[in-house]
Amino acid sequence: MEPQLLHSVTDSVATVVIRHPAKRNAMTAGMWSSLPPLLDTLAADPGVRVLVLTGEGATFCAGADISTLQGSPLEAQRLAVAAEESLAAFPKPTLAALRGHCVGGGAQLAAACDLRFAEEGTRFGVTPAKLGIVYPASATRRLVSLVGPATAKYLLFSGELIDAGRALRTGLVDEVLPQGELDARVAEFTRILASRSQLTQAAAKEFANGRADRDAHWSERSRESGDTAEGVAAFLERRPPRFTWSVSTSGRSGSAT
């Protein structure tokens, strides 16, 4: 089977699947290159409210396909960083569903998502020190923001793998699920995310990523959207809210960093 990224949209949730079974879903240059345009298409789709990134079968992603590093390692890294930044900038909530190995480039992609849910038994590692690669500054900052400087240094200096329990304790993942329960939990939680206000989510995502300068922008969007009035009315009428503001129809909100 050819290495590729598969995608589908069901009930407002887009699922992107990393598929390279011969190499535990390692990312090839072609896969890195195909991710940004795929994400642009899904971001522009008003039917998509949440994005899930996962791997096919029993593992998430074992990193970059090492064979792609032989010709031009700097070009391979450039492609990986472009894919990571595109995922981080996706304007709707993103969740990585992790099992098996989440290593190297896989950890880079997982860290670029907003949330990470893992199955027990998942192993995590950031492994450039095993290859003599300088880990990108953007990916390093993102890792530090998740786990703090000490754990980031432990992972980067050693290249050692850690288990899901330690990943949870350090903040690398948000939830750890028993074997066989990951998919159901992801489906349940993404339904919750899809039912919430995209306006709130988009603004919160920018603010959490350091865009305090966008406060006036989001205050204006809030006045225009009608989401607040709908949320209050729904609460008083004891019914689910029907939020209508959409990132897709209002334009990309800005870059996440």
Results as ranks from 00 to 15, higher is better:
residue 85 E to V: 13
residue 74 L to M: 08
residue 100 G to R: 10
residue 114 D to M: 01
residue 72 S to A: 15
residue 57 G to M: 08
residue 82 A to N: 14
residue 107 A to H: 10
residue 87 L to Y: 02
residue 107 A to F: 04
residue 61 C to K: 05
residue 69 L to H: 11
residue 59 T to F: 09
residue 53 L to E: 00
residue 67 S to K: 14
residue 62 A to K: 09
residue 79 L to E: 13
residue 116 R to D: 06
residue 95 L to R: 03
residue 74 L to K: 11
residue 47 G to W: 02
residue 120 E to L: 07
residue 58 A to E: 15
residue 102 C to D: 05
residue 89 A to W: 00
residue 112 A to E: 05
residue 72 S to V: 06
residue 79 L to W: 13
residue 59 T to L: 12
residue 70 Q to G: 03
residue 117 F to I: 15
residue 101 H to I: 10
residue 116 R to P: 04
residue 80 A to N: 11
residue 107 A to W: 09
residue 48 V to L: 00
residue 66 I to S: 13
residue 92 K to M: 03
residue 106 G to T: 05
residue 78 R to G: 12
residue 114 D to H: 01
residue 113 C to E: 01
residue 80 A to S: 14
residue 123 R to E: 12
residue 115 L to N: 07
residue 114 D to N: 02
residue 78 R to A: 14
residue 112 A to W: 08
residue 53 L to K: 01
residue 68 T to D: 15
residue 97 A to E: 13
residue 96 A to M: 03
residue 118 A to H: 04
residue 70 Q to A: 12
residue 84 E to A: 14
residue 56 E to Q: 15
residue 125 G to V: 05
residue 110 A to T: 05
residue 52 V to C: 00
residue 97 A to P: 12
residue 111 A to N: 09
residue 100 G to I: 11
residue 84 E to D: 11
residue 55 G to P: 09
residue 120 E to T: 13
residue 48 V to C: 00
residue 97 A to D: 07
residue 84 E to L: 09
residue 124 F to P: 06
residue 121 G to V: 10
residue 54 T to P: 12
residue 91 P to H: 00
residue 126 V to W: 13
residue 77 Q to R: 11
residue 111 A to E: 07
residue 53 L to T: 00
residue 103 V to P: 00
residue 129 A to C: 15
residue 83 A to N: 05
residue 83 A to S: 13
residue 71 G to P: 12
residue 60 F to R: 06
residue 61 C to R: 03
residue 73 P to Y: 07
residue 47 G to Y: 01
residue 87 L to T: 02
residue 54 T to W: 02
residue 110 A to D: 01
residue 103 V to N: 04
residue 87 L to F: 01
residue 84 E to N: 14
residue 67 S to G: 13
residue 116 R to H: 04
residue 51 L to T: 03
residue 109 L to I: 05
residue 111 A to H: 05
residue 100 G to S: 09
residue 76 A to T: 14
residue 111 A to C: 13
residue 55 G to D: 10
residue 114 D to S: 02
residue 115 L to T: 13
residue 52 V to M: 04
residue 93 P to H: 01
residue 108 Q to F: 12
residue 118 A to K: 03
residue 128 P to I: 08
residue 128 P to K: 07
residue 114 D to C: 02
residue 47 G to F: 02
residue 79 L to D: 14
residue 57 G to N: 09
residue 76 A to H: 11
residue 98 L to S: 07
residue 68 T to M: 07
residue 47 G to S: 10
residue 83 A to I: 03
residue 46 P to T: 06
residue 123 R to Q: 10
residue 83 A to L: 03
residue 105 G to F: 08
residue 90 F to Y: 01
residue 72 S to C: 11
residue 88 A to E: 11
residue 70 Q to K: 09
residue 106 G to V: 02
residue 89 A to Q: 01
